[in-house]
Design a protein around this nucleic acid. Structure first.
Lengths: 119, 119
DNA sequence: GCAAGATATCGACGCCTGTCAACATAGACA
DNA sequence: TGTCTATGTTGACAGGCGTCGATATCTTGC
């Protein structure tokens, strides 16, 4: 049984932070949030997130995604792994296929932290 | 050589894009937006943005910022240049001091693009 | 003019990252 | 069992990035 050293995904850490412009961000917060943005800060991963999010049913299998790029399958798999590691994508294996789905609240929390667009 | 290919700052490009989850992002859009996120995807630059945004008057001079980090002055200057290059920070030199200010709408546009996830 | 201070640029150094080819794994089906 | 297909992992490579010390540029004041 794992001990309770929490080891939460970066996605979890964002919800606790007030918007960027609200007050000076602590180094700890910045170190937690930066990996999330770094995961998004790539054209391929941005399109992957968008493709998955806008795909019918809110999910897409890898075979759908690889066709949209002129990249090798391992490269796409690598990018999906990065997005999954930081908690932006959920992974669901059904039979031979693996379906990815945008994690609820992940993008919303990030958007709030950056823009506080809610105002 | 190409003529007047407008050369707008990445900041401008974000406003035109619909939210991530709305429809599949084009490669062109992704290539335009990624640099903005990449500029934010660093703990030091995240804190710099936050420090400037929450500083009194909405602006801060470099001397205020360097004190908040255990980093050399050239390093801070480099990070500020990155944020300024993508249009996230405005730069205003007054006398010997240089004041940085968060560019209006920059963070808001980014937040809107990222957030507003699938309802 | 010169000196001092604030900020930017340069050159170099390790480290990280995106990409691929090759291989590995795992399920479906005969 | 074995083969086929979908996906992940490994190892390697080039290029990008964060950091620093040294240096340059600019502004104020003498």
């Amino acid at each position: 049984m794992p001990k309770s050293t929490v080891l939460e995904s970066p996605n979890q850490a964002v919800a606790c932070c007030s918007p960027l412009s609200r007050e000076p961000m602590s180094q700890r917060q910045a170190v937690q949030v930066a990996p999330l943005l770094k995961a998004l800060a790539d054209p391929v991963r941005l399109r992957l997130m968008s493709l998955v999010a806008s795909h019918e049913g809110g999910e897409a299998c890898v075979c759908d995604l690889t066709d949209a790029f002129n990249l090798s399958q391992p490269t796409i798999s690598h990018h999906l792994k990065v997005l999954h590691a930081v908690g932006l994508l959920d992974r669901d294996k059904r039979g031979v296929w693996v379906y990815y789905r945008v994690r609820p609240d992940a993008l919303a929390n990030l958007g709030t932290l950056i823009g506080s667009a809610s105002t």
